[in-house]
Every structure is written in C-alpha cells, then in structure tokens.
Nucleic acid binder design. Structure first.
Lengths: 171, 171
DNA sequence: TTCTATTTCGACCAAACGGACGAAATTAGA
DNA sequence: TCTAATTTCGTCCGTTTGGTCGAAATAGAA
C-alpha cells in the first residue's frame, strides 16, 4: 500500500537514537520538539511512532537495558582477561546508561523497583555474564566490585589510581 | 532594621529541603513554582534567595555532597564493624544523592568532571573515610566495593543476596 | 492512472515555564 | 511612633511545553 517503512524497526531505531539524547539532557530537559529535531523529523511524525513522551522514554530505556543475550559470554582467555573484557564492555556507555536508568527509576519506591521487569532483566543479564566467568558464588561480589569501579571512574572524571589487584578484578 | 532572618542560614535550609525535591523529580521535572509550594513560600520569595533555578540547584548539590568532615570517622569496633557502619551511613540516602549527582554531572565532559571542585571534594571525603578504616592501600578497592554494593541494592529494589564475606566488607 | 493506507508535516491550543517587577507586609533601631 | 531595610507576595510577560488535528505527501496495489 503506502510507504515502505517497517514501523517497528523504524521506531526501535528512533528509540535507540533518542536514548542518547535523553541520557544527555535528562527526561525533563528533553522536549519532544528538540528530540524530533535531533532525530531529523517533525514532532508530529515522532508522535506517530510514540503516543506520548513517556512511551518514547520507556522505549528508550528498553533499548538501553541489556537483554538476556546482550552481553556475549566470551569464553577465551584467563578469568582476569575475561573480567577485564566484560568490565570494558560495561564501561563503554556506563555513564550514559546509568543517567538514563536513574531517570527511569526516579520517584519509584524500592518495592516498585523490585517488581520492575526491565530492571530485573537487565540486572540478571549482568549477573549472568559475571557468573559465567567467576561462578555463582563470587558473582554478586565481583559484579559489585566492577560497578563500583566504573562508578568511581565516572565520578572522578576519568581514570582512578590503579588498585593493587585485590582479587583479579581490577586492571 | 527589618526581619530577623539570617539570610545565609535560611537559604541553606531551603536548599537542603529543596535537594530532596530535586532528587525525586529531576532537574527538568522540578519547577520553581512547585518547589516553592513544597517549601511553603511564594515563588518570588524563593527567587529572593536564589537568583535562578540553576543557582538553587547548585546550592542543593553543595548541600548534599559530603564535605571534609561530613563523614565522622568512628574509631570504635573492629574494621568490619566500622566498615559496616560507614556503609550504612553512605547507604542512608544513597539513591537520592546519586540521582542528584547524576543530574549535576549531566552533559559535563569527563574533563569537566575531573576539574569540578565539589565533586572531587565529595570523593575525597569518601576516600578519606574509607582509608581511615582500611588504610590507603586498600581504600580505593574497598570504596569501589561499597559503592557497587549500594548500587546493586538500589537497582535490585532492596536487599540483595548476602555475599559470602569476600574480604570483610559485605555483611 | 487511480485508489488507498500510511507517513510526514505545519498550525494550533491550553497549560506551564523561568524570570521580572512593584507593591505590601514585617520589624529592628531612632 | 515613625522610618527604613528586608522579606514576602501577586501579577504580568514572552517563551516553551506536551499533545491534537486536518491536510499534504508518499508509494504499493488495482
């Protein structure tokens, strides 16, 4: 019939590109006009794909949060090397993703967060990736270590002083 | 002459109470009208203490970020106990403070963050508190561990499964 | 070509925004 | 009590907001 556009694929692509804008400007700091301009279409066209700003934002978070198979479990190298690789992969867009996630969780109670599907799915993806390397027993502690290091690196504005290899996590 | 109000003290008190509102609604989601209503005064009165929304927000972040002596270094108990106490103190308003800090750092480059005074001061306060307990050598790694655990607790929506005491940090 | 379903757009709306301003209220010192 | 500095407030302004709507453009199917 009309245009040749795959609606779902196109909206997912828009959401992926919009996520970067949201994480840079925050939910409240992002207007539908500005984001449409950034995406290269009109505001009305954007509303054609997402009925509301909230819906677009939710689509963005789903695009950013890692799914089950988003973190490929590379099986090569030593445990230290594999952890280092995972850490670098997580650190890629750590700040941007965290900014988006904090926006996403804002105002939610702990109980609501605990029942949030997307959030739990993303966490289990991280846990699974770590557990595949160090095993279930140490996974929670090692994941905490990695997240804490990434956090400190971001809050410090770049690199932090290297820690004297506590248990093979840091580099 | 006129009113008996200590201008600085009053504005600091307003900023402290406004910080909670900012962290719950985000910078863009917070309007001067709403925050004034939440604080129990008129918008104009709020503008009397803070020339702009940005100025109010900056005052809020300064109120939230720990200063040099904000984290009292309790010297009683074992290292594990003291770490646990520090962790609980940090975890008190962890989510709210992080939400505010991510808003504060939003859009800043890594270089800008590295040169941000308030941020570096807050980090050194945390580092100092940890170093006072475990020593300089392990401080960076232990701080990362604590921050990561607090992060995971928040993102999980409450408690996480207890880790089998890796090196005395977790409880 | 013509039809028709989809995509894109500009124009519009009421509400809310950050901020400016002068008047009203308040109160310590004369 | 009167004065004057400060705090508080209501009101106004231009701009931007999220969202709606009908028309125009597009392109596969007839």
């Amino acid at each position: 019939m009309p245009k040749i556009i795959d609606h779902d694929a196109h909206s997912q692509d828009l959401a992926r590109r919009a996520a970067a804008y949201f994480s840079q400007h925050g939910y409240g700091g992002t207007s539908m006009r500005k984001i449409a301009q950034h995406l290269g279409l009109s505001k009305s066209a954007l509303y054609h794909y997402f009925p509301t700003k909230e819906a677009l934002f939710l689509a963005c978070t789903r695009q950013v949060m890692p799914g089950e198979d988003a973190l490929p479990q590379n099986a090569t190298g030593s445990e230290t090397d594999r952890l280092q690789a995972l850490k670098e992969m997580m650190g890629q867009d750590f700040a941007a993703e965290m900014a988006l996630i904090f926006d996403y969780l804002r105002g939610k109670s702990q109980a609501e967060i605990a029942q949030d599907e997307a959030m739990q799915l993303a966490l289990s993806a991280y846990r699974g990736a770590v557990a595949a390397i160090v095993g279930e027993t140490r996974s929670e502690q090692v994941l905490a270590q990695i997240m804490g290091e990434l956090m400190l690196v971001y809050l410090s504005g770049g690199e932090t002083q290297k820690t004297p290899q506590p248990h093979g996590v840091t580099g």
